[in-house]
């Protein structure tokens, strides 16, 4: 089982994600620089948070044109689990792999704080060990984290069960309090909050077990395959 962690110029949660994958969950992980290709033997791909290209133009807009995104697209089509966190989510949206857009928070400020998520879809490769409507204490840290979709798309998302996480409170003005979504097949998941910042009790002041289940879900998913 091998998890690829993609590094763009300006990614800054790549090392945190790698630490959690390898040191906390004992997974085999490898960094991939955005100008390189992804090898065939990758079982899951994670696009970590950060400020790819300094968030210029729009968060994720430039990284979405990186060469590696073509490989990510191919893997997405093959049904390989792909997770985008924060800037990774923004990149997946800009690349058209996930629906919607991420706009400036209604406060117009960068926000770093703890909140909690509610699991709305526990069938994805990253949520299949969580209970439906389970609460996950987790931090957010973003400036352009307000998820936006028009009403028609929202209806479609609901119908296809593509809303994966909702915030338990109004955080940043996201449409329908959406914090994370998946593609129609459910293998590509994007979320604004940072699960890698919540899996260790030392840095999680509330409860580290629920967000650990996101990674344990991945282990369950790709472990079964092998």
């Amino acid at each position: 089982m091998k998890v690829g962690v993609i590094v763009f110029p300006g990614s800054n949660c790549d090392r945190d994600m790698y630490h959690v994958l390898t040191d906390v969950f004992k997974l085999d992980a490898e960094y991939f620089w955005h100008e390189k290709g992804l090898p065939k033997n990758i079982d899951a791909v994670i696009l970590p948070g950060g400020f790819s290209y300094g968030d210029r133009l729009r968060s994720g807009a430039i990284a979405a044109h990186s060469p590696i995104i073509n490989d990510v697209r191919k893997m997405a089509e093959k049904g390989i689990p792909i997770l985008g966190v924060c800037n990774g989510f923004q990149i997946l949206v800009e690349a058209g792999l996930l629906p919607g857009a991420l706009l400036k928070n209604t406060s117009l400020n960068f926000m770093c704080r703890w909140t909690s998520l509610i699991v709305e879809n526990n069938k994805t490769p990253f949520t299949n060990k969580l209970k439906l409507h389970q609460k996950i204490p987790i931090p957010i840290a973003n400036g352009e984290g307000r998820y936006y979709v028009d009403e028609l798309t929202l209806k479609k998302l609901k119908k296809n069960n593509q809303i994966v996480f909702r915030y338990s409170e109004v955080v940043n003005g996201s449409t329908d309090r959406i914090a994370g979504v998946c593609n129609e097949d459910g293998n590509v998941v994007g979320m604004m909050p940072h699960p890698e910042r919540a899996t260790e009790s030392a840095i999680n002041p509330i409860d580290n077990k629920p967000s650990s289940l996101i990674f344990e879900s991945l282990i369950k998913t790709i472990g079964v395959k092998n």
Binding site: G54, R56, I62
Partner: peptide, 13 residues
């Protein structure tokens, strides 16, 4: 810097 990044890392690529 923003204009330069859009030029060099997006348009000229």
């Amino acid at each position: 810097p923003e204009g330069e990044t859009i030029l060099n890392d997006l348009v000229l690529k």
